[in-house]
Amino acid sequence: MDKWKDNKAWFLVLPVFIIVAFSAVIPLMTVVNYSIQDIFGPGQRVFVGTEWFKEVLSDGRLHEALWRQLIFSGLVLLIEIPLGVFIALLMPKKGWGASISLVVIALPLLIPWNVIGTIWIIFTRPDIGLFGAAINGMGIVFDHTASSLDAWITLILMEVWHWTPLVALLAYAGLRAIPEAYFQAAKIDGASTWATFWYIQLPKMRGVLTIALLLRFMDSFLIYAEPFVLTGGGPGNSTTFLSIYLVKVAVGQFDLGPAAAFSLIYFLIILLFSWLFYQVLQNVGKGETS
């Protein structure tokens, strides 16, 4: 059934358009404006063209931050998506068990992001934290303030702990939307649990998993508050991700021009990856489900 064609529908979209334009377009124009000028102070600015973009693109520390960010997001997605699906398959289907597990699983999502960092500082301290004390008690020296590897392990553990619930909730919603008849048919055909998962459940979850993947990619790529609180980007620069580096340049050094150019490049990278994921997932497995 086709939708009604009516350009008057624009009036309904107008409030959203105005409010988002106010919050997005005006600031974005300011960023573009900064990115092509050198600003000495109020009223003193010189047009510099693409100089900031060149400077930012050849900044070695930015390249390092970008690689770190890509590895971090990649690892996080590789762990969270399969784990989230697995947990969704284990979740109770109805009754009070389902209610309680939904609430409990969603709990980490509702904690302010810097509090997440605080929780993990407390949890991994070797002297007062359960995790830190336990792992040091086993004779392994673990300190995320001294060792880069330990800092990475802590951050990835934290990120998996924090966000796998979102993937699990989405996958759970996808699973519940599959009509019971599919499973009855699979049972009559004598399909194994694995075959049921691979040919029925997974293809049916494609929509929700696309959302999960996109949301997780965007948010892990934008991560700021948690590593800022937990490691502050250290030890050294080993956990300085893109956002942390950006804030360092923009607020710390107050280099508006390079920071603005950096922001625009950052935004374009996310846009590009999101578009790629979206296209790939729209086409994967189409033949099986349609």
């Binding site: 939708k3 350009n7 529908a9 974005l28 900064y34 603005a260 922001s263 996310i270 846009l271």
Partner: peptide, 30 residues
């Protein structure tokens, strides 16, 4: 959900791109 109008798809995607922009980008302009 009900209408087709000029630029509907583009506006929908544009709205979603705002979900993708790093908050850090907007700190100073904001």
């Amino acid at each position: 959900s009900r209408y087709r109008f000029i630029g509907d798809r583009q506006i929908f995607f544009w709205l979603l791109t705002n979900r993708m922009s790093p908050a850090a980008v907007f700190l100073l302009p904001f």
